[in-house]
Design a protein around this nucleic acid. Structure first.
Lengths: 148, 148
DNA sequence: TTATTCCCTATTGGTTATATAGATTATGTA
DNA sequence: TACATAATCTATATAACCAATAGGGAATAA
């Protein structure tokens, strides 16, 4: 399961992506609109800023805004910021690779083979899941509902 | 990431599947062969038994053995026993469904849409990953190494 | 210089993960 | 029956992490 942190982060990012302007939005507005505890969201947005996903401006008229375009921000990257590697086994990750203590021969491990396949499929889906594509999905779902 | 519990469970099950006989194996043998803390493995095998995956016999000549055939035991089921639902959001699971507090309209939620797609792909891979198929993968990997 | 807003540090309560220890129950065999 | 074997049950410990809150500091714009 995703941590609440990650889920809130995604919801907040989609919130920003759905606005057509790139004007900063204050934490409070996002928290209230998306029903996220404000102080908790504060820490989350800061982490997203430090990761280079968001930018911020202080003082009046300030707030947070997307640092990159919605096409360039995908869920794989966001999830990695908060929940770490996407792979389910340490021996399958790229950047956080770690050998399994109990493993006898990694090269011929059938379990590892399965989870490498799973990781590839997961990363593929999550990389394609950009903020822009999520907004598109929402529009498609709305249209689908209206047509009935 | 998988919990150690789940990883140990899978390793132990594959250990049992690789033996051609269905004779019971004592906990100690599995623990030593696979480098798993014995007392911890004890609890894990018991849980697998209660879930109907393993059977056991007490006393001399006893131990644990697969209750079903290696073709019938898949990683999706094993992972659900220990780590719960495979889906990454509560609103996407079948059996553990729960609405997201902060969600406005589930039917048009683009985030949910992504994670439904991801869940389907994941379950598909993990259902096909039976103990038998894992053993086959190992043989294939060994052959591949030998051919070089 | 004042209001606004992000930024930083610390802390809290609760849950989960990863085990270990010791006693008990069931089983096969001499 | 007695004994050794091996699973089963209960209890405990520790560490890590999650989710959230509190309070003040620092930067910025008007």
């Amino acid at each position: 399961m995703l941590s609440k942190k990650t889920k809130y982060a995604i919801v907040a990012l989609v919130h920003l992506a759905k606005r057509d302007t790139k004007a900063p939005v204050v934490i409070k507005d996002i928290a209230e609109a998306e029903h996220i505890p404000q102080k908790f969201l504060e820490a989350i947005l800061l982490e997203l800023k430090n990761a280079g996903t968001l930018s911020s401006r202080k003082g009046k008229g300030g707030g947070y805004y997307l640092h990159k375009s919605p096409q360039e921000i995908n869920l794989a990257d966001v999830m990695r910021i908060f929940d770490g590697p996407i792979a389910l086994l340490p021996c399958v990750t790229h950047t956080y690779y770690e050998r399994c203590d109990e493993c006898k021969d990694e090269a011929t491990c059938g379990i590892r083979d399965v989870f490498m396949e799973l990781r590839a499929a997961t990363v593929d889906i999550l990389k394609r899941a950009t903020l822009a594509s999520i907004v598109n999905r929402e529009m498609a779902l709305i249209n689908k509902l209206l047509q009935r």
